[in-house]
Design a protein around this nucleic acid. Structure first.
Lengths: 196, 196
DNA sequence: GTAGTTTTAGATCGACCGCTATAAAACGCG
DNA sequence: CGCGTTTTATAGCGGTCGATCTAAAACTAC
């Protein structure tokens, strides 16, 4: 057994995730990462491998920490409509708090076209979110305010589309009222259809 | 008067646009640009200024050549529903033909967070597209299949959101049926609301 | 033809890129 | 204690970045 690590590995990973999230993959240099993680470049390569491997771990950490957490909350809600509303309320609030957008959407634009592995990873996670919406829509009561049955898949895709658009606009600096308006429309899609 | 230019400036600009569109701003080097434009680096700097200035001209060229053209076609259509359908049909077809996505959306993610000038330019053009949808929705007949009046602004924003999501998914390699499904839903929003 | 001006081409600048080699420092174990 | 092993810190590798310099080439005006 040799010398033990002196830095907090999970904290360093979180710092790396923060950098990739804010600046993207290419624009984040290994020196930027090492600085943000408060370690030296050699320690970085020793503990996490090369830049791409570190990014993969950050992407997985993001999916586990952020994306799947939202889906789980949606599944756990008693009233699917309230769950969907909470989902979008929280998404807008988070998008206004910091303007980094969503690492998955950011990477879908920057990394996915050039990296098949990350492309499938991102695609699968987006599908998980869509399926979360789908399950929530399926749980809606048949009577009461409800969109026409048999279209849950299309509606779920449209709701995922609004999530992605919200994230793009948030990163580009879109105004608060614009984000809130889109989120309201997304919720209205689930609530009853035309009453946008 | 000195020595005249030997290269076709509009063609060179189009080649630069192609590079920025495909690879993004940061990942496109001045040498990449010069190679694609079939000129030397010195000629590039002489004719177009620095890399950022060249990107600005490409962005303007993109807006004029691609984005505003689609809006104009939408405005020119006799039947707004048919115009909207044609808009999304063409958008999906173009997005499947090449996978570069939309330069405006790409730049909204990569450039806008770090460049206020480009951020406002992109924001304004996205607003133009939203307004195009808004005008088309306002032209819908009061009788007949139609979404509830007074919600044209929200619906227009939702349609712009689907455009952005389509472009993100297209760049990330989304499957054809997924894109077509989202486009159908966007058209259905204008057609009558709940019949997704 | 000559002077003046602009565009070419190619070399080159300092800075930064991802990554690694080297060696000192810090541990467990005998 | 010294030995083996791992992490640390630093320097540096070849390569590319955006941008510029020098000078030859190509044109107009006179």
């Amino acid at each position: 057994m040799g010398r033990p690590r002196t830095f907090d590995q999970p904290a360093a990973l979180a710092a790396a995730l923060d950098q990739f999230w804010r600046r993207g993959y290419e624009a984040t240099s290994v020196r930027d990462l090492a600085g943000a993680m408060s370690i030296t470049g050699a320690s970085l390569y020793n503990a996490f491998g090369d830049k791409r491997s570190l990014f993969r771990r950050c992407l997985h950490a993001y999916v586990d920490t952020y994306a799947r957490k939202r889906i789980a909350e949606l599944d756990a809600s008693d009233d699917p409509i309230r769950g969907i509303r909470a989902f979008f309320d929280d998404l807008v609030k988070a998008s206004l708090r910091d303007r980094r957008g969503c690492l998955l959407v950011n990477s879908a634009m920057e990394v996915a076209p050039w990296d098949a592995e990350f492309a499938t990873l991102i695609e699968q996670c987006l599908l998980e979110i869509e399926d979360g919406f789908y399950r929530a829509l399926k749980r809606l009561p048949v009577s009461g305010p409800r969109q026409s049955p048999g279209n849950e898949r299309s509606t779920a895709r449209l709701m995922l589309s609004t999530v992605m658009a919200l994230r793009v606009l948030a990163r580009a600096g879109g105004e608060e009222e614009r984000l809130r308006s889109i989120a309201r429309s997304a919720v209205a899609l689930a609530e009853g259809g035309p009453h946008l």
